[in-house]
């Protein structure tokens, strides 16, 4: 604490104060004041299906430039088929077997993946609380599957929050990442995105906008630097 006080006093003096007493943040709410975002957030909840489809198109257009592969699924069944196809076509990278880590999320439970994948000789593990060896399994995994609850069309970015049953590493350690995104979770731009983040922003979280990439060797773009080498985003528009 002594080092904190000395440090802050030095700054206080540098900014023209006498440095005798330190200013208390609680006395200066204006410095932290931000505009009320509730109205903007509410607006994003009132979008028509048509408007949401337009946002999905924008998301897909931007995604193309980021090498993020998009799909549309009109039902859980369709989404499940897309996932199976992706997993069948992807070779494992960190183990000889095909292992899939699945976030604990109702939409992912609804996909009924363990049963379907077992038939294809793909092992799926849930990351739900109480599951064992999540880290060790993730290290070997071919794919991590998540269900982001917010996405920004203008940047083709999804949010992953740090929640029980939804480890960070699911979108990081496996060879590829698959995200199941509900159509209604897409908002337009940075302003709407941050307005909707609201309380999330108090938690650890990450925005993800494509597969891991680098251009550090002669500015040649290469996907799959340290994170997943592919990101598949399935936009779920439940009409059936």
């Amino acid at each position: 604490m002594a080092e904190r006080t000395a440090f802050l006093k030095k700054i206080a003096i540098a900014t023209g104060q006498d440095g005798e007493t330190l200013r208390d943040p609680a006395d200066f709410p204006a410095i932290f004041a931000s505009e009320d975002q509730d109205a903007l957030a509410a607006k994003t909840h009132r979008r028509s299906h048509e408007e949401l489809l337009q946002l999905a198109s924008l998301f897909e257009d931007v995604a193309k430039t980021l090498n993020l592969t998009c799909y549309r699924a009109a039902s859980f069944k369709k989404a499940q088929k897309i996932i199976v196809k992706i997993l069948k076509e992807t070779e494992p990278e960190f183990s000889s077997e095909k292992i899939v880590m699945v976030h604990d999320h109702p939409d992912l439970v609804a996909l009924n993946l363990p049963e379907v994948l077992q038939k294809k000789k793909i092992t799926s593990y849930s990351t739900a609380r109480g599951e064992k060896d999540i880290r060790a399994r993730s290290e070997k995994a071919l794919a991590g599957i998540t269900a982001p609850e917010l996405a920004m069309a203008a940047g083709a970015a999804i949010v992953q929050r740090d929640l029980p049953g939804q480890p960070r590493s699911t979108s990081l350690l496996p060879s590829i990442h698959i995200a199941l995104l509900r159509l209604e979770n897409i908002v337009a731009d940075y302003d709407e995105f941050y307005a909707r983040l609201g309380k999330y922003s108090e938690e650890a979280m990450v925005f993800i906008s494509g597969p891991s990439k680098t251009a550090d060797i002669e500015a040649v773009l290469v996907h799959g630097a340290h994170g997943p080498r592919a990101l598949h985003c399935i936009i779920l528009d439940e009409v059936e």
Binding site: V62, L66, M152, A154, G155, A157, S201, E203, A204, M205, V206, F207, I208, S209, G210, P211, S212, K213, G227
Partner: peptide
Amino acid sequence: KISTYVSF
């Protein structure tokens, strides 16, 4: 427009 990862 945004980097691949923005973590908090």
